[in-house]
Structures are given as C-alpha cells and as structure tokens.
Design a protein around this nucleic acid. Structure first.
Lengths: 138, 138
DNA sequence: TTAGCACTCATACTAAAGTATGAATTGTAT
DNA sequence: ATACAATTCATACTTTAGTATGAGTGCTAA
C-alpha cells in the first residue's frame, strides 16, 4: 500500500515536470510541438498499459493465490500438503515415495490422512476439492 | 480480425485528427497548450488501458477455452471424452457408470482407451495432461 | 521432562483401478 | 450392402489405491 502511494506520487511529479519541460521547450522554440505531443502521448499510453496490467494482475493473483489459511484450518501438515500436490500432478504413491525419499507405506499413510481431512473418498476427488478450496494451483 | 483492423484504422484517424486539431487550436490561439496536452494525455491513457484490457482478455479466454480440435486430434470419442470429464470431477468408475447408465466394465473400457490416447498411466495423470492440453475446464 | 504432534515404516488386508481379450449391437459412410 | 467405428458388456487377471493397526523416532511447548 505504501509502495502504491509512493509510485503514484512519483508519477504525478514526473508528469508535472514533463508539462513544465514541454511548455518551456515550446516557448523557447527548441522543440516542435508535434514532438512534445508525441512524447506526452507515448508516456501516457505506456502509463495506461502499466496501471491496467497491475490492476488486472492483482485480480488474477487473487483468483489464483493459494489459501494458506485454509490449509492450516484443514489441519493439513507440511508433508501431507506436499503429498497432496504430488497427487494433483498425477504421480502414483510409489513415484511420490521415490521423489520424497520415503517408503510407499509412508505415502499411503499421508494420503489416507489427506483424504480424511479433505473429506474425499478418492485421490481424484481430493484433487477436485483442493482446487475448489484453492489450496493447490489451478 | 477484420474488427481489430477497423478499430485500429479508426484509432489512427482519430489520433491524426486530434493532432491537426491541436496544432490548429494552438496556432490560432484559441486554446491553451496545457489543455491540448491534457486532452492528448487523457486520450492516450484511456487508449492504453483499453488496448491492454483487450489483449489480456483474449489471453484469458484462450486459457479457459476448451480446445475441441485437440480432442479430435487425439482421437477421443464422444463417450471417452465424457468419461474423462467425470474422472476429472473426481468420480469413481462405478459412480460414472451409474451417472451414464452403463456398466462399470464399459467405463473401464473407456478409461483404458482414454489413458492410451492421452499417454497416461493413471487417471490422475490423465487429468493433469488433459488440463495441460486444455481439453477440460481448469 | 514428559505429553503431544509430525513423520516414519511395516504388515495385512479390502477395494478400486487398470489390462487383455473377445464379442454383440448399432449407426453410418462408401 | 457391407465395411467400419463407436458403444456396450463380460470374464479373468494384475496392479495400484486405500484402510486399519501398531510402533519407533525426534522435536517442541507446557
């Protein structure tokens, strides 16, 4: 929030300077008015694009951001959440075990716990529920 | 595509008119240069926002649209695609069978075919691949 | 320090998923 | 008309997933 205010302040100062500069340049006859207008136009075009991108990006992030609070509320441990993510990427229990350097039986324990905590009957349902709860990337 | 070209053409004409108008206004002393610059700035700012929004919106649509051509390319039949979608929603073979009013063995056949056509080893991997190929909703 | 939690692993089991094969039916395009 | 693809179903099988239970280890907060 402070960052936003600072950026806007800097922007306003820059624009005012540009105005003064353009006025001076034109009055002293150093620069053609077309050039000044072109520069102003380009600058404001770019500013428009950037601001718009920032706003849309924030909205996008909100839609895609992982809800860490919900992960905690569900009581998912760090390891269980890791396993959930690997399930969602399509790995088998054995593959997850090899990736995390533990035994398959350990993964089975984690998977069972994840299913209980997400109230899912199957790993595919767990994926669906986790996406709905926005605790894994879409 | 034709629409885009028309819009851009109109935009260029409008901008050129604005330039001429501003030049004329300033030369005849009817308008202060600050006003002209302000108008130019506002117009280009708005144009920047609009163009940016359009581009991002198209990208968004592309990300969410289902690629029906790819479904056909993969050789997925209508029924196989239906089954794939139900898998992605987290249903078991039995549940899919009940939903589509066929036997579980029929669903197993479809699932096997889907796995071969998507080059997946498991249904969870099929979900992941289908999402990557954008043939099922995210 | 000890109670509790997270993590690990094993065994033994049941349930579900997936493969392979063969076959019947139906609509459709040549 | 017939060849073809899609859909359906069954049986028999292997593999993977998931459950239940018990237990050992290490870390941490009361």
């Amino acid at each position: 929030m402070k960052k936003t205010i600072l950026i806007f302040a800097a922007l306003i100062v820059a624009i005012l300077s540009l105005f003064q500069l353009s006025k001076y340049s034109v009055l002293t006859g150093n620069t053609a008015i077309e050039t000044v207008i072109a520069v102003i136009a380009i600058v404001f075009f770019i500013v428009g694009v950037i601001i718009n991108k920032k706003v849309l990006h924030q909205q996008k992030d909100l839609n895609r951001e992982i809800d860490h609070k919900k992960i905690a509320d569900l009581g998912l441990s760090k390891r269980e959440y890791q396993v959930l993510c690997e399930i969602a990427s399509g790995l088998s229990n054995k593959e997850i075990a090899d990736k995390l350097f533990v035994s398959e039986s350990t993964i089975k324990t984690h998977v069972s716990n994840v299913l209980v905590k997400l109230d899912a009957k199957r790993r595919t349902q767990a994926i669906q529920i986790a996406k709905t709860l926005q605790i894994i990337p879409q």
